[in-house]
Design a protein around this nucleic acid. Structure first.
Lengths: 202, 202, 202, 202
DNA sequence: CATGAATGAGGCTTCATTCAT
DNA sequence: CATGAATGAAGCCTCATTCAT
């Protein structure tokens, strides 16, 4: 890889970092290329040297965003000590914290797919799958050891993700310490989904 | 009420039905007045005869949608027999079924807060509150009788709603009977949130 | 003239009165047919039963406005006692008072002609001519008796009209009594245009 | 200032020249951005590269126009020889000549106050004030030396400006030499406003 | 006569995209 | 590589006008 290519690579990363941040904050429609360019002290047109268009930039940005996000969760899952339950709870808290603080509009980002080209959609799906895998693995571990019990693995994961990614909506106006408490409550609440014990309240 | 007024009322309802469907499918930004008008075989400008603008149309559409939805759940909650648990489970199933079958993407409608005028936001919030109340009441009943136990009422409701309203995303391609099973699984899963027993898996 | 025709005539007059008021207040562009209709408690469409379109309505309204205005000045010119100078001064004051208080945007109204059909333009011109005549007659009288002296009759009248019709612009925010003083000052100032004495300050 | 900036500056000037002409000819409401763009052989949207919107463009156009105009009058007032009367008369002639020949309908530009944002209105007011100042200064000089006499300074200036800026309306169709005569007559007529002697003809 | 409804043209504005330099 | 400039499509909105009832 030549020096030029590395340089280009770095530039691309810079752009993606900024784009991920903006898209994550405001969602696809509310971010214009002008916004991205301005934050980079660059002209709109320059972005086209690196990306074919807004969709491609957005997809790449989502991938960056997801990669960063997943990467941090993976690292935490791998390194965290404690029982499966302790680690899962930590994972949930971390996920929610990232969602609320860094990518409050990530949910919005995943709800535009109807208009997106299939190719991009596939990559987004793949990215979500990888993200999901972190939780799935930990869940499987706890299930195998008997520490967890669920009604159905897939459904449980879906419900967890739904709650975690919507958290920014209701944590929007909270103060720092109120948010911390909200995270705790949400984590504790979601842990009930995997709790053995009486099962569901039916 | 004169015949003319009834006629106008019916027209408004037609428009709202179409608008609710479209906004529910694609979200606020991705629906243009042109889209709504076309679906009604009418010109864009005509919509302004009934609504002052896009915001007002969208709000009315949401209100219509939410009112119908909430009304049905309220009726069910009032009439359903059985324990609090049985009724809550039925409510969850009904909610999800409506979401998936009739308003497959209502979720998108709630994700535009950044752009909406305060007045409209207030009405949407009020609508959500009323919707929430149905579940909250039932939950309170079960908690009082000791049939339920939760970490925190608000958080539990938020998590439930999140999972229920995102259901359409992952139930999209399922066959009729697969959907039924998915509803059951989701209901059972969410019931764990209110289950007494060991509490969270911490 | 049948009863029906008289009734229609009265309706037309009502409409014109309202239209003259509105156009005189805000100018041509800033008044919509909706505005006129609303003030009459009538539907937009109904206006088309009496007038072929906005232009025709506006022209007729201008004529009404001008007729009313000119009529009052004519009456005053005919009945007022005193020297030509005293009567001219009274006329100026009356003109300005009407302009400022009742038709503050009349000036605006006369500045749209570029877009108007020739037929309408002719009528407006004719109307202005008649309006002008009141002043011209009085001026001629004073000139003949030697009470007045002007550089050139036409130019003097133009200058007077210009100053009188622009008065609303600078009298806009004044209080009642300040306006009265402004009227006096303007009248006195303009009377210098017809003063004999040293002629111009050249 | 870089070459690029100079180029942009020139483009802005081109646009402003065209805009000033059009707005001056027809008034604010009767000119669309499409009109301006077409005259520049450019698309509507391109104008937004230079101006934030119609209001800003119009204000800048007025400012350009007024600045040029005032500048020339200031220069003339400063350099012209002769008594205050001679200089004032020259100033009036120059003002009218510019109005009629170069900005034949600038008057229209000043007649949109109802619709304009406060900020822009303030700048227009300021511009008019500066314009006014040229005449006011000269008038004050003549008053102090006893060469002039007026009823009221402000009113006199208003009347003068009104007559001068409406001149294009009645000088529209005149031939070159007729215009010259009209300018003379108007100047002589307006000079009566500052003439000592018998005062007003009351 | 009057209304309610609809239309269509036009206006302002935004923005992804292109391209010569 | 990057920029400045321009484009064109699309969006929201207003309003004069038409017309069946």
């Amino acid at each position: 890889m030549s020096r030029t290519e590395r340089k280009r690579g770095r530039r691309v990363e810079q752009i993606l970092a900024v784009a991920a941040e903006l898209f994550g904050e405001r969602g696809y429609d509310a971010v214009s290329l002008e916004d991205v360019a301005e934050r980079l002290d660059v002209t709109k047109g320059s972005l086209y040297y690196y990306f074919a268009g807004k969709d491609e930039l957005a997809t790449a940005a989502i991938e960056t965003l997801g990669s960063d996000w997943t990467g941090r969760l993976e690292a935490m899952a791998a390194s965290a000590p404690g029982s499966a339950g302790e680690r899962l709870r930590a994972l949930i808290r971390a996920h929610v914290a990232i969602a609320v603080r860094e990518y409050p509009a990530a949910l919005r980002l995943f709800l535009v797919p109807r208009t997106w080209p299939d190719a991009l959609r596939a990559r987004i799906t793949e990215m979500r799958r990888r993200h999901d895998q972190v939780f799935r693995t930990l869940l499987a571990e706890g299930l195998e050891s008997g520490e967890f019990a669920v009604v159905a693995t897939g459904t449980t994961l879906q419900a967890m993700h739904a709650a975690m990614s919507q958290a920014p909506l209701w944590c929007a106006g909270l103060a720092e310490d109120e948010q911390e408490r909200a995270f705790d409550e949400l984590a504790d609440t979601l842990m009930k989904l995997v709790s053995p014990g009486v099962g569901s309240a039916r």
